[in-house]
Write a protein that binds this DNA or RNA. Structure first.
Lengths: 192, 192
DNA sequence: TTTATAAATTGACCGCGGTCAATAATGGAG
DNA sequence: CTCCATTATTGACCGCGGTCAATTTATAAA
């Protein structure tokens, strides 16, 4: 039978997470090295991998938590009434997701759950974001020919597209918020 | 002053590319190891990096070439008349882009040019794909409130979204082609 | 042909993520 | 308290991408 989790385990894990946060605060996500984290946490390298499947798993956790913070903000706000408000509301999240090329790459890698049983923190946030967006869209005068879920899926696709273009030298002249507004206008308020 | 490129250089490069293709044909993209490639090509490891900035650069080349082959097919076909035809026409490309999780990750990483001066093969294919799609949409009875370019950008966003969901255990029950049709219908033929 | 210079190649070496058999700490049963 | 099965920790080791000073090879000029 399964034993209770030891105190030690929780402490070590907390030390690792704290150390990682410190490194990231100083030098950014991309600069994080497992060796630096274990050095600061005062544990052996192997211990890291006893707590996290791999480096990406810790990134998933930390970045996922940050995204969740932004989603909390979104949920605390009233549903936006206009396309412009909607784009504006999403900008803090977009800004975080595009704070580093590396961060965006991690997010894309983890945005889908590899298996039903192992939905990671970031994959969870994508589900949450869809739900929040779908709730915004209900009872609003946007697309009536599409389910709120499908509309929300499209919004997510355009968020990813807008961030992708932030990192593209050929297209990053346009302000991300303007681009989001253009996309949302076209997607949610077609002028047929 | 710059000297002409040596024969030797082209030969070595060709040997490396051939060796890489062979490895990939046998074991797939993800399994490709630089050490295995240089072993088969009969050159030293350092030589590889004299020809390619890093492993990703060779991947960019090989995967970009493969995507170009699919785009050649698309260009050779007449413009699709219906949403259904359009989705069907894009499926071979979608299938290749989702043949391996690793391949899709490489594509996403390289889909935007990091700098204007260094547009890689994959970034080029994204531009080409937009152009081809925009040409399809011109003189067709789809969205008249949007430029063909914006419509094409949206199509690209939905292609990426559809492939992402192929790799997501939570959503991969739906057939990719059906999903593409749903997206394209919603994007290009809104029923307001 | 000889020589000078640029270009291509080499392989020992490094950084860093990840593994695993050995060891130590923990906590419940007797 | 003692014993011991379970769990946590350790650090030497490996795989593999990437670097660079040294060496070899090609080519234009004399």
């Amino acid at each position: 039978m399964a034993r209770a989790i030891q105190q030690r385990t929780l402490q070590t894990r907390a030390k690792l997470v704290e150390a990682a946060k410190a490194v990231i605060a100083e030098d950014g996500y991309e600069a994080m090295r497992v060796e630096e984290v274990v050095l600061r946490a005062g544990v052996a390298k192997g211990t890291f991998f006893a707590h996290f499947k791999d480096k990406d798993a810790l990134m998933d956790l930390l970045i996922g938590a940050e995204i969740d913070r932004h989603l909390d903000q979104l949920e605390a706000q009233p549903a936006p009434e206009t396309i412009s408000d909607m784009a504006a509301a999403m900008m803090p999240l977009v800004a975080f997701m595009s704070c580093e090329r590396y961060v965006f790459d991690v997010i894309l890698r983890h945005s889908g759950a590899a298996a039903n049983a192992e939905i990671g923190p970031i994959a969870m946030t994508f589900g949450r974001h869809t739900d929040i967006t779908a709730n915004w869209l209900k009872n609003k005068p946007f697309r009536k020919d599409l389910s709120a879920e499908l509309q929300a899926e499209g919004v997510q696709a355009f968020v990813v597209q807008a961030i992708s273009l932030v990192f593209c030298a050929l297209h990053n002249a346009v302000d991300p918020q303007d681009r989001m507004e253009t996309y949302l206008q076209a997607w949610l308020l077609p002028q047929t």
